[in-house]
C-alpha cells in the first residue's frame, strides 16, 4: 500500500463528498431514528436488539449505500478507469475510497449510539462485532457499486440490502413464529449474530460474522477484478 496514493484518493473523495448532496444527507437517517427512539423510550435503557438495529441502519444507509453510490458513480462516469490506469494498486484505490465513508460511518455511529446510550456496547465482543459488521457492509457496498454500473441502478439494490442486512432485528417484530424457516435463516445474518455475541457467552457468532465478511470480501474482489479489464 502506498500512503501518498491512498491520501491523494482520500483528499479527492473528501472534496467530492462535500459537494455531493446525496451523500451528505445519508447520515441524517440513522441519527434521526436514534433521536426518535430516544424520544419514544421515555428514558428507559434500550434492549440490545434495538441498539443493533440502529447499528444495522447506520451501516446499511451510510457505509453500504455511501460506498455503493461512490463506486457506481466512478464506474458510470468512467473515472475509476483513470485510477486503475494509474500506478495505484487495488488496495490503494479501495482503502483511499473507503476512508471517507469509513470516517462518516464512524461519526454517525458514535453520534447515534451516544444518543441512545452506548454503554451496553462498550465491551470487547460488541466492539469486535461492530468492526466486523463495518467491513461486511463496506465490502458489500463496494461490490454492489462496481456490479451495478450506474448510480441509478444502485437504488434497486439498496432496499434489499437495507431490509435484509440492516433491518434484520425488525423481523422479530413482524409476528412471525420463531420456528419459522424465515426467522431461523434471518438469525444467521450478521446483525443477528452480533446481537447473539453481545448477549450470549459464545464466541461462535463472531466466526459466523467473519464468514459473512469473507463472502462479501470475495464478492468485492471478483467485481473489482472484472472492472479492471475489458476482457
Amino acid at each position: 500500500m502506498n500512503v501518498q496514493r491512498v491520501s491523494a484518493i482520500f483528499e479527492k473523495d473528501t472534496k467530492d463528498f462535500m459537494k455531493n448532496t446525496m451523500l451528505l444527507m445519508m447520515p441524517v437517517v440513522p441519527i434521526f431514528l436514534a433521536l426518535l427512539y430516544k424520544q419514544m423510550s421515555g428514558g428507559e435503557a434500550f434492549p440490545t436488539f434495538l441498539l443493533y438495529l440502529v447499528v444495522g441502519i447506520n451501516l446499511s444507509t451510510v457505509t453500504t449505500a455511501g460506498m455503493m453510490t461512490m463506486m457506481a458513480e466512478e464506474n458510470e462516469k468512467k473515472t475509476l478507469r483513470g485510477l486503475i490506469q494509474s500506478p495505484a494498486s487495488i488496495v490503494d484505490i479501495l482503502v483511499g475510497k473507503s476512508l471517507v465513508v469509513g470516517l462518516m460511518s464512524l461519526i454517525t455511529l458514535i453520534v447515534s449510539l451516544f444518543i441512545m446510550g452506548i454503554e451496553p456496547l462498550l465491551n470487547l465482543k460488541s466492539i469486535l462485532a461492530i468492526i466486523f459488521l463495518f467491513f461486511f457492509f463496506l465490502f458489500l457496498g463496494i461490490g454492489i457499486g462496481l456490479f451495478s454500473k450506474s448510480v441509478a441502478a444502485t437504488s434497486a439494490y439498496i432496499m434489499p440490502v437495507m431490509l435484509l442486512f440492516g433491518f434484520t432485528p425488525m423481523f422479530e417484530l413482524l409476528g412471525i413464529s420463531e420456528d419459522s424457516i424465515v426467522i431461523k435463516f434471518a438469525d444467521t445474518f450478521p446483525v443477528m449474530q452480533a446481537i447473539e455475541l453481545t448477549d450470549g457467552n459464545s464466541w461462535l457468532p463472531l466466526g459466523i460474522i467473519a464468514i459473512w465478511v469473507l463472502g462479501a470480501g470475495l464478492f468485492m474482489y471478483v467485481c473489482f477484478k472484472k472492472t479492471m479489464t475489458d476482457d
Binding site: R5, D16, K78, R81
Partner: peptide, 21 residues
C-alpha cells in the same frame, strides 16, 4: 474511456493524478 471528476476543479483533478504518479 478517459474521464474527469465533474464536481472538482481542473486543478484538483490534475493534483490527484500528479500525486498518483
Amino acid at each position: 474511456n478517459s474521464s474527469l471528476y465533474e464536481r472538482l476543479t481542473i486543478y484538483d483533478n490534475l493534483k490527484l493524478f500528479c500525486r498518483l504518479y
